[in-house]
Structures are given as C-alpha cells and as structure tokens.
Design a protein around this nucleic acid. Structure first.
Lengths: 163, 163
DNA sequence: TATTGTTATACTCTATAACTATA
DNA sequence: TATAGTTATAGAGTATAACAATA
C-alpha cells in the first residue's frame, strides 16, 4: 500500500531518475479528476432536475448572458463543442423560450444569440442553484481549500504546454 | 447552512443582502473540474492511441490486476458503471486476448476475471504511458501542487455529505 | 425469490461529412 | 473559394427492462 499523499513526502526525495512511475489509479490526477467530476455533475444534474436542464444548457445560458448577440460559432468555441451540437442545444433553448436567434448582423448568414426575458429570469435562479450545488458537492472542503482547488484546476486547464 | 433555493423563498428580501453567490462559470469548481478533466482525457486518449485503448479499458485492466479473479459485479462497482457495460468492455478485452473469464467460483453463475500474460505485459507499458501522460497534462503544476490537487480531489470524491 | 451475467433498447454526447445560403 | 448554420449519420457512453442459468 502506498502511503497517503501527506505533507512531508516531497523535499527529501532524490531526483527520481528511473523511479518506475507507479500508476496505481489513485496516484493519477486524471483518474481522481474524472471521479470527482462525475460526482459533481451528478449533484448538479440532480439539483437541476426540477428545471429539466442539462449542465451544458446552463453554461450556454451564462455565456449568452455575458456576451449578448454572439454568434453560434462563438458559442461553440466557448463551450468547446462542435457547431452541430450548438444547433441542437439552441433549438432546445429557443423552443423553451429561453433564448432567441436574431438576424441582426451585417453578415446575413449568422444570427445574434440573446436571452429572452424569461431566460434572464430563469438564469438568475439557475445561477443560485448551481452555486449552491457546487458548495454542497464540495462540502468536505474548507473555503480556503475550495479556492486552492479552483486555482489549481484553472492552472491545469490553462496549461499551454500539454496537448 | 444556506437555504435550498426553492420556488418562493425570497419574496420579501428585495435587495439581496445575502451573499451574492456569484456563479460566473469561472467561480464554479464543477465547471473548472469539467474543463480540466476533458483536457486530461484528451491527452490520455491521444497517448493511448497507438494501442487503440480507451481510458475505461485501462482502468479495468488496473483493477483486474489488483484484484485477480474478481467478478463482473465487482468490476462494475469499482468502475461505477452498470453490469451491461462491463459485458461490452470485457468482451473487447477478451477478444484482444488481454483478459479472460474463468468459471472458477463455487457460484457457477459468475466468472473470475483475470489478466492474460499478454494483458500483464501490455498493462506494464500502459501504466508508464498513463503516468507520463498525467505528468504532461499537469506540467504547469509543481510536484507539491500536484500532490495538493490530488489530495483535494480525493477529498471531494470521498465526500459523504454530498449527493 | 434473488442474483449473475446477458441481450435488447434507448437516450445522450460527440464527431464528421455534406448540404444551403450567404460572403 | 470560404464561412455560418444546418442536416444526416455514426460512434461512444450511459441507463433500464427483461431474460436464462444458477443460487
């Protein structure tokens, strides 16, 4: 059994030239990330259930609100999904009266995407639920730890070296 | 303990003296977790490409190695997937000659699952690739930060309060 | 009756090619 | 010709019901 990742394991280790790179799943950040992410998603989906809303739809609403009139290509890039997925997603939001496509651009191929009034009102509620859900799912962390985790995750996500 | 954001809770508290609960996506751990996880998965899938192997298949191999002879129900629980998914996954591993199902239990409904010799040999290689991939994807973190992140993620994942 | 593994099925998510209408 | 949005399609991943063999 490997020991728990405690505080005092790092400094004394010699430069590991040919350490076997132990990869028991518990030592892989990717694995822990996956499990934690699944758990948090489950929580959010559960908390969104009364609204019949998926996490990606919520993200879309937030992005549209923060950049009203953006094009579908922009939304695709922001969500890192493909344009065809944006179509489905937007169709759903539009049919529920939460967002609208408006032909309002010089370039008549594209739409400007906006929240409807109903979308704005609902989103306000959804944001509180999402924030509460986030805290609930991470209730084993102290506020400081939560900030640390957030910072570390952003550091991973914004890493330019990888991929 | 903040309230559950129910339907009609704040009829009177017009100005939100409450905590703003800002939920711009960047302040949500769940969102950061999702983005980071996707990025790391992409990296791993890329690094596994020469082996035509999915992350879940790798996890299965590691678990089988650590608990030889386990049943498919055990594997399902360990991977938090459903039994029917184990069937597909194992069929693939078995058809590639990496794992085997053996009727070796008192209970003749179940199989014991083992790695083949080829599975053991390949897994050794895969583990090194996975470990290297993990480090590459988190190369923006110092070793200490990596350990911190791992510990925080485990804390989230093992949180009993949530869900 | 309950459980192990299985089949069948369905729904979501994801990715790509090809079409349309503009540019 | 290139781009924005769309359609069609196919592949994973995930979840559930129902069945056969065994307990």
């Amino acid at each position: 059994m490997p020991r728990k990742p405690g505080a005092t394991t790092q400094a004394l280790s010699a430069p590991d030239e040919n350490v076997p790179l132990d990869a028991s799943l518990d030592s892989l950040i990717g694995y822990a990330l996956r499990r934690a992410q699944l758990k948090m998603f489950q929580q959010l989906i559960e908390d969104f259930r009364p609204f019949d809303l998926r996490p990606a739809q919520f993200s879309a609403l937030v992005i549209i609100e923060s950049e009203p009139g953006l094009m579908q290509t922009d939304l695709a890039r922001a969500l890192t999904i493909e344009p065809p997925q944006v179509v489905t997603l937007l169709n759903k939001l539009e049919s529920r009266g939460l967002a609208v496509r408006v032909r309002c651009k010089p370039d008549k191929r594209s739409y400007g995407i906006f929240l409807s009034k109903a979308g704005e009102v609902l989103l306000k509620q959804l944001k509180e639920i999402a924030a509460q859900s986030d805290i609930t799912a991470t209730s084993s962390l102290s506020p400081v730890e939560r900030q640390q985790l957030l910072a570390l995750l952003h550091k991973v996500y914004h890493n330019e070296n990888a991929e």
